[in-house]
Design a binder for these strands. Structure first.
Lengths: 116, 116
DNA sequence: TCCTTGATTCGACGGCTGTCGATATGGTCG
DNA sequence: CGACCATATCGACAGCCGTCGAATCAAGGA
């Protein structure tokens, strides 16, 4: 259950100054949520879906894994603060929380030029 | 052993169109390398070190884990294509590969405005 | 009310991961 | 050469993770 209100608290590029331990623990949880191919695809599927949200029924088709496994991965993404969800009648909808992605994106911003 | 030359192959924001499975597998490996607090701190420690590189001897001090464990984490970062390394005399130096970070950063770029 | 469909939770299992101490390797200096 | 320092590798072990099928819950329609 990581919030996303603390986005400002941590997130200039990590290449500028060392992360403190607490921030590292926090961020590692988010990256761990991204460290599975199924979850990455789920996230991009949700984000690129019409209207910016998708119901679970839209998400089970493209994968070879069982529906409970999809549900498990969605839970991981939700608990990492990367997506939100809501039940509307029969279906449950998921959407991406842009602030969370932006936070990670900013963190990874590389130093200017260089290629090495 | 992930290259970083293929940076162009995958990396407009993942929120625009669904990732294909191959790209997802590839990217998940990089995020997995970032999914540990020690490795995140190592990476930022290396990147923010004077001259953009650090020898292992600079990296073992700030952590509570043993030296072999640090070595293991550095290997994970290297095999994920996030850092490079080289032996110079007695010491081994590590530096960040900016293209890899940039690739991930671009991938996570959130859609414009919105806050939800 | 009962059945059906959508989604989550549960319990189990195999494989992966982080950690350690011990050991090996690579290099420098007497 | 031989002692010594800096890193890496090895082997072991506990805990976590992705996956499944089965069971459960939630909502809607006969």
């Amino acid at each position: 259950m990581l919030g996303q209100d603390d986005a400002a608290a941590c997130c200039s590029p990590m290449v500028r100054e060392p992360l403190d331990e607490e921030a590292a623990v926090d961020l590692a949880k988010m990256f761990k949520a991204l460290s599975d191919p199924v979850r990455l695809r789920l996230l991009s599927l949700i984000a690129s879906h019409k209207g910016g949200e998708a119901c679970v029924c839209d998400l089970t088709g493209p994968f070879d894994v069982s529906q409970p496994t999809i549900s498990h991965h969605l839970k991981v993404l939700r608990e990492a603060g990367l997506v939100g969800s809501e039940r509307r009648g029969t279906w449950v909808y998921y959407w991406v929380l842009p602030a969370a992605l932006a936070k990670l994106s900013a963190l990874l911003q590389a130093p200017a030029g260089e290629s090495r």
